Computed example of a mutant assay.
Amino acid sequence: MKPLKEFTIPFVGLKIAKHLFEYEVNQAFFKHFEYEDFNDVNIHVNVELEKKTTLLELHFEISGWVNVNCDLTNEPYNQTIENTFDLVVNFGDEYNDEHIDILIIPHGTYEISVEQYIYELIILSVPIKRIHPGVEDGSLDSEILKKLEELSPKLKEDKEKEEDIDPRWNTLKKLLTDK
Protein backbone atom coordinates (compact mmCIF):
# COMPACT_ATOMS: atom_id res chain seq x y z
CA MET A 1 0.00 0.00 0.00
CA LYS A 2 1.40 3.33 -1.07
CA PRO A 3 1.59 5.89 1.79
CA LEU A 4 -0.49 9.06 1.60
CA LYS A 5 1.84 12.05 1.10
CA GLU A 6 -0.24 14.52 3.14
CA PHE A 7 0.29 12.36 6.26
CA THR A 8 4.08 12.36 5.94
CA ILE A 9 5.93 14.80 8.19
CA PRO A 10 9.43 15.84 7.00
CA PHE A 11 11.07 16.64 10.34
CA VAL A 12 14.67 17.12 9.18
CA GLY A 13 14.26 20.82 8.40
CA LEU A 14 12.28 21.70 11.52
CA LYS A 15 13.76 23.66 14.41
CA ILE A 16 14.07 22.14 17.88
CA ALA A 17 10.64 23.19 19.18
CA LYS A 18 6.96 22.20 19.07
CA HIS A 19 5.23 22.06 15.69
CA LEU A 20 1.51 21.57 15.03
CA PHE A 21 0.12 19.61 12.08
CA GLU A 22 -3.62 19.50 11.40
CA TYR A 23 -5.47 16.97 9.25
CA GLU A 24 -9.07 16.46 8.20
CA VAL A 25 -9.92 12.78 7.82
CA ASN A 26 -12.82 11.75 5.59
CA GLN A 27 -14.16 8.60 3.94
CA ALA A 28 -11.43 8.59 1.25
CA PHE A 29 -8.82 8.03 3.98
CA PHE A 30 -10.51 4.76 5.00
CA LYS A 31 -10.94 3.66 1.38
CA HIS A 32 -7.14 3.85 1.15
CA PHE A 33 -6.97 1.30 3.99
CA GLU A 34 -9.85 -0.72 2.47
CA TYR A 35 -11.90 -0.30 5.66
CA GLU A 36 -15.62 -0.26 4.95
CA ASP A 37 -17.33 -0.27 8.40
CA PHE A 38 -17.97 3.49 8.34
CA ASN A 39 -20.71 5.05 6.21
CA ASP A 40 -19.24 8.53 6.51
CA VAL A 41 -16.42 10.17 8.48
CA ASN A 42 -15.63 13.69 9.67
CA ILE A 43 -12.66 13.77 12.03
CA HIS A 44 -10.22 16.55 12.89
CA VAL A 45 -6.71 15.39 13.84
CA ASN A 46 -4.07 17.50 15.60
CA VAL A 47 -0.53 16.14 15.69
CA GLU A 48 1.86 18.08 17.89
CA LEU A 49 5.46 17.18 17.09
CA GLU A 50 8.07 18.21 19.61
CA LYS A 51 11.50 17.95 18.08
CA LYS A 52 14.32 17.41 20.53
CA THR A 53 18.03 16.85 19.91
CA THR A 54 17.92 13.03 20.11
CA LEU A 55 14.27 12.12 19.65
CA LEU A 56 10.80 13.21 18.54
CA GLU A 57 7.66 13.27 20.66
CA LEU A 58 4.30 13.16 18.89
CA HIS A 59 0.99 13.87 20.59
CA PHE A 60 -2.12 12.89 18.60
CA GLU A 61 -5.59 14.31 19.36
CA ILE A 62 -8.67 13.31 17.38
CA SER A 63 -12.23 14.58 17.60
CA GLY A 64 -15.23 14.27 15.35
CA TRP A 65 -17.77 11.66 14.34
CA VAL A 66 -18.11 8.50 12.30
CA ASN A 67 -21.40 7.36 10.81
CA VAL A 68 -21.93 3.68 11.65
CA ASN A 69 -24.83 1.25 11.72
CA CYS A 70 -26.39 0.32 15.06
CA ASP A 71 -25.70 -3.28 16.12
CA LEU A 72 -29.31 -3.78 17.26
CA THR A 73 -31.38 -1.98 14.62
CA ASN A 74 -28.94 -1.51 11.74
CA GLU A 75 -29.99 2.15 11.65
CA PRO A 76 -27.14 4.55 10.72
CA TYR A 77 -26.16 7.20 13.25
CA ASN A 78 -23.24 9.53 14.00
CA GLN A 79 -20.99 8.21 16.77
CA THR A 80 -18.88 10.99 18.30
CA ILE A 81 -15.31 10.06 19.10
CA GLU A 82 -12.42 11.71 20.92
CA ASN A 83 -9.06 10.21 21.79
CA THR A 84 -5.40 11.01 22.37
CA PHE A 85 -2.17 9.10 21.88
CA ASP A 86 1.49 9.80 22.60
CA LEU A 87 4.33 8.40 20.50
CA VAL A 88 8.07 8.67 21.06
CA VAL A 89 10.24 8.39 17.96
CA ASN A 90 13.84 7.45 18.63
CA PHE A 91 16.74 6.84 16.27
CA GLY A 92 18.54 3.50 16.06
CA ASP A 93 20.28 1.07 13.73
CA GLU A 94 17.12 -0.35 12.16
CA TYR A 95 13.36 0.21 11.99
CA ASN A 96 11.51 -1.23 15.02
CA ASP A 97 7.83 -0.74 15.91
CA GLU A 98 7.44 -3.62 18.38
CA HIS A 99 6.35 -1.32 21.22
CA ILE A 100 2.99 0.43 21.13
CA ASP A 101 4.18 3.92 22.00
CA ILE A 102 7.85 3.81 20.92
CA LEU A 103 9.01 3.83 17.32
CA ILE A 104 12.65 3.40 16.39
CA ILE A 105 13.66 4.61 12.95
CA PRO A 106 17.09 4.30 11.29
CA HIS A 107 19.63 7.11 11.53
CA GLY A 108 19.42 9.33 8.46
CA THR A 109 15.63 9.10 8.15
CA TYR A 110 14.25 12.54 7.35
CA GLU A 111 10.47 11.99 7.48
CA ILE A 112 7.85 10.01 9.35
CA SER A 113 4.44 8.79 8.16
CA VAL A 114 1.66 9.17 10.73
CA GLU A 115 -1.23 7.76 8.69
CA GLN A 116 -1.14 4.29 10.31
CA TYR A 117 -1.22 5.79 13.81
CA ILE A 118 -4.15 8.05 12.92
CA TYR A 119 -6.01 5.11 11.35
CA GLU A 120 -5.53 2.88 14.40
CA LEU A 121 -6.42 5.66 16.83
CA ILE A 122 -9.72 6.30 15.05
CA ILE A 123 -10.63 2.62 14.78
CA LEU A 124 -9.88 2.02 18.46
CA SER A 125 -11.92 5.07 19.49
CA VAL A 126 -15.18 3.63 18.16
CA PRO A 127 -17.04 1.59 20.81
CA ILE A 128 -17.15 -2.17 20.31
CA LYS A 129 -20.92 -2.29 20.77
CA ARG A 130 -22.53 0.39 18.64
CA ILE A 131 -25.98 1.33 19.95
CA HIS A 132 -28.07 4.10 18.43
CA PRO A 133 -28.76 6.87 20.99
CA GLY A 134 -32.47 6.58 20.15
CA VAL A 135 -32.48 2.96 21.37
CA GLU A 136 -31.05 3.96 24.74
CA ASP A 137 -33.52 6.78 25.39
CA GLY A 138 -36.48 5.08 23.67
CA SER A 139 -37.03 7.74 21.01
CA LEU A 140 -36.07 5.59 17.99
CA ASP A 141 -39.06 4.21 16.07
CA SER A 142 -37.83 1.18 14.15
CA GLU A 143 -39.42 -1.94 12.70
CA ILE A 144 -36.58 -4.05 14.07
CA LEU A 145 -37.08 -2.75 17.62
CA LYS A 146 -40.82 -3.50 17.43
CA LYS A 147 -40.09 -7.04 16.26
CA LEU A 148 -37.49 -7.57 19.03
CA GLU A 149 -39.98 -6.40 21.65
CA GLU A 150 -42.67 -8.65 20.19
CA LEU A 151 -40.42 -11.71 20.29
CA SER A 152 -38.87 -11.03 23.71
CA PRO A 153 -40.08 -13.22 26.60
CA LYS A 154 -42.72 -11.68 28.83
CA LEU A 155 -41.82 -11.24 32.51
CA LYS A 156 -45.39 -11.37 33.86
CA GLU A 157 -46.06 -14.75 32.29
CA ASP A 158 -42.90 -16.15 33.89
CA LYS A 159 -44.02 -15.06 37.37
CA GLU A 160 -47.45 -16.63 36.89
CA LYS A 161 -45.86 -19.93 35.86
CA GLU A 162 -43.71 -19.94 39.00
CA GLU A 163 -46.81 -19.49 41.16
CA ASP A 164 -48.54 -22.47 39.52
CA ILE A 165 -45.70 -24.86 40.41
CA ASP A 166 -46.47 -27.67 42.85
CA PRO A 167 -45.36 -26.54 46.37
CA ARG A 168 -43.47 -29.79 46.93
CA TRP A 169 -40.86 -28.58 44.43
CA ASN A 170 -40.17 -25.56 46.63
CA THR A 171 -39.12 -27.80 49.52
CA LEU A 172 -36.77 -29.65 47.16
CA LYS A 173 -35.26 -26.32 46.06
CA LYS A 174 -34.58 -25.51 49.71
CA LEU A 175 -32.42 -28.65 49.95
CA LEU A 176 -30.15 -27.24 47.23
CA THR A 177 -29.77 -23.86 48.94
CA ASP A 178 -29.32 -25.17 52.51
CA LYS A 179 -25.81 -26.48 51.87
Rank of each mutant, 00 (worst) to 15 (best):
E34D: 14
E34T: 07
E34I: 02
Y35L: 12
Y35R: 06
Y35D: 05
E36H: 11
D37F: 05
D37A: 08
D37Y: 07
F38T: 06
F38Q: 02
N39M: 13
N39A: 08
V41P: 08
V41N: 07
V41G: 07
V41I: 10
V41M: 05
N42L: 08
N42A: 11
N42Q: 09
I43P: 01
I43T: 04
I43M: 04
H44I: 13
H44C: 04
H44F: 13
V45F: 03
V45G: 00
N46C: 09
N46A: 13
V47C: 11
E48P: 00
E48V: 15
E48F: 05
L49M: 07
L49T: 07
L49K: 01
L49D: 05
E50V: 06
E50Q: 09
K51G: 10
K51M: 12
K51I: 05
K52D: 13
K52H: 09
T53G: 00
T53W: 05
T54W: 12
T54Q: 12
L55V: 04
L55Q: 13
L56I: 02
E57G: 13
L58N: 02
H59Y: 15
H59T: 14
H59S: 15
F60H: 00
F60V: 04
I62F: 06
I62D: 06
I62W: 03
S63A: 14
S63P: 03
S63F: 10
S63Y: 15
G64R: 04
G64W: 05
W65R: 11
W65Q: 12
W65L: 09
W65P: 00
W65I: 06
V66Q: 02
N67M: 11
N67C: 14
N67V: 09
V68N: 08
N69V: 00
N69P: 00
N69M: 01
C70M: 05
C70S: 10
C70N: 01
D71F: 03
D71E: 07
D71S: 03
T73H: 15
T73G: 04
T73N: 05
N74Q: 09
N74I: 04
P76N: 07
P76Q: 08
P76S: 04
Y77Q: 04
Y77F: 14
Y77D: 01
N78T: 12
N78H: 11
N78K: 15
Q79L: 12
Q79R: 10
T80H: 12
I81K: 00
I81L: 10
E82C: 04
N83R: 10
T84F: 06
T84N: 15
F85V: 06
F85P: 03
F85A: 07
F85W: 14
